[in-house]
């Protein structure tokens, strides 16, 4: 019991006790504060911003708690802070990419160009956003692969948020033979779009005479649809166009080359040579 009495009388015991109490009270309070901040931020902003606020509160609190405990234990903070400064500079040089990603992540969360669940196109790779973290954005590609894109890459690249707006337009390039009546073809295309249940009747389908192509008259049909109906619309309208064109006798053009001899109206001249023309076999034997 004497050792216990000595321990209680020792000033170091009280210092340790105070530090333990600080830690025991500080950590749960920080958890509570972080969780409250997260809830408050979630009600007003996005999930990502709420996560950032929660982590910010917790780690700042932990830093303050460590400083308080070290001060309580009698460490000289000026020396520690000086050393921390030097270590910080060294670390920042060593972790430039990570820091850049973290800062990019903060900008992404702040700017909110997309949210979890959106389908985005980053440098030609399309996928659904699974999470937006401090270092990277995690995605699931359309063929079910996991993709991690560093935040810095996202900030530097052109990103298309495909599902941002409630409706989209599907542009179909259709080539028909030059012999076809263009007005009739355009009218048919609008009829096909109007009859398709996935095509929105408003905004109206867009139809553009695009070009006199090499092998076809090129027409663009732009059909508006709800952002969730892309595959249904694409499959159904393509089939309908083919069936309807077949039924109406409209030729869908394919790439071909026409040879002319200087005039479109003249037939290609063919000259038949009569007499002792050498056969290819004879010509070959003579040359050898």
């Amino acid at each position: 019991m004497e050792w216990l009495a000595n321990l209680v009388e020792s000033p170091r015991f009280y210092i340790l006790l105070r530090s333990a109490i600080l830690l025991a009270i500080g950590l749960p309070v920080l958890h509570l504060l972080a969780s409250g901040g997260r809830r408050l931020a979630k009600a007003r902003t996005s999930d990502q911003a709420a996560m950032l606020v929660g982590k910010g509160i917790f780690y700042t609190g932990v830093l303050l708690l460590i400083i308080m405990i070290m001060q309580n234990l009698g460490f000289k903070l000026t020396a520690i802070l000086g050393a921390a400064g030097i270590i910080g500079v060294a670390l920042s040089f060593a972790s430039q990419t990570s820091l850049s990603n973290i800062i990019s992540g903060i900008f992404l969360i702040w700017e909110r160009p997309f949210a979890v669940g959106d389908v985005i196109d980053v440098n030609g790779t399309v996928g659904m956003v699974l999470s937006i973290d401090l270092l990277s954005v995690k995605m699931r590609t359309l063929d079910n692969r996991f993709l991690r894109v560093p935040n810095e890459t996202i900030i530097k690249s052109q990103v298309i948020t495909i599902t941002r707006f409630p409706i989209r337009r599907l542009d179909l390039d259709i080539g028909v033979a030059y012999k076809e009546d263009v007005d009739r073809v355009m009218k048919l295309l609008v009829e096909i779009a109007d009859a398709n249940p996935y095509s929105l009747d408003e905004p109206r389908p867009l139809i553009i005479f695009k070009n006199f192509g090499n092998s076809a008259i090129e027409i663009m049909l732009g059909v508006w649809f709800s952002k969730t109906d892309l595959l249904n619309l694409r499959n159904s309208i393509m089939c309908e166009i083919k069936k309807r064109f077949d039924a109406e006798g409209i030729e869908i053009a394919f790439p071909h080359v026409s040879l002319y001899t200087g005039s479109a109206t003249q037939p290609f001249p063919v000259r038949v040579v009569e007499g002792n023309a050498a056969t290819p076999a004879e010509t070959a034997s003579e040359s050898s």
Binding site: P166, P197, S199
Partner: peptide
């Protein structure tokens, strides 16, 4: 079966049935 339609601006409008 009603066709889909849209009311309002393309960025903020409302999907509906025509």
């Amino acid at each position: 079966i009603l066709s889909n339609s849209f009311f309002g601006e393309p960025t903020t409008g409302q999907l509906g049935f025509a």
